[in-house]
Design a protein around this nucleic acid. Structure first.
Lengths: 103, 103
DNA sequence: CAGCATCCCCTCCGATACTG
DNA sequence: CAGTATCGGAGGGGATGCTG
């Protein structure tokens, strides 16, 4: 959780499940992320072994990011969690509103 | 994730699965947490509807925190994730070491 | 195109002191 | 016992400008 519970890791992982993506394509898919955070989070994910970075020495250079086996594996329990959150979103909103009104 | 991906929420939820706990008992079970963060995180968890706070007006006062239905529910997919992490910890450590050596 | 470097704000969180 | 209030350091993360 400490590793992928930050602001962007989850979104980047999910943006990669459909297949490899280039840097700027990722930047488009992950709405609102800055160049800085995309680079930094990708480096972290690469370091932990979830993502592989491949450089194709063309001109201009092409860089692709893809999920490694472990990354694909990790996404499964994460989806469980996200789908849980989806199903309970209303309930949470209700609880929060109720709590706020009492205070 | 934004809600329970912080430093303490997960640990507090897990400390409550065995049954209700009093404030200071929680403080002992969640190693390293400060009074301030325990209070604050409990308030958040209560606000989102995961935890219920009950005050028994004795002297001295007794306060118990317990998982609500939604909290117990949430813990299930979280356990999935944690057990995944347990199983892959070595693999992650290896990937990280390898990455660090290349840099 | 895919980044790195820098500046800077703002939030998280620990430490400490105080209260019903 | 179970908090609240306040201060201050560390770092997460955005904006901007520059590069091979």
């Amino acid at each position: 959780m400490a590793q992928i519970g930050d602001k962007w890791s989850l979104l980047i992982l999910f943006a990669l499940v459909d297949g490899p993506e280039r840097f700027n394509a990722l930047k488009s898919r992950v709405e609102g992320i800055s160049q800085r955070m995309l680079t930094q989070t990708l480096r972290d994910l690469e370091r932990e072994g979830y993502v592989i970075r491949t450089v194709y020495p063309e001109v201009p250079v092409r860089v692709e990011y893809a999920l490694k086996e472990m990354g694909k594996d990790l996404v499964k329990p994460l989806y469980q969690l996200v789908s849980w959150a989806d199903q309970h979103q209303e309930e949470i909103n209700r609880a929060r509103k109720e709590y706020d009104e009492k205070s």
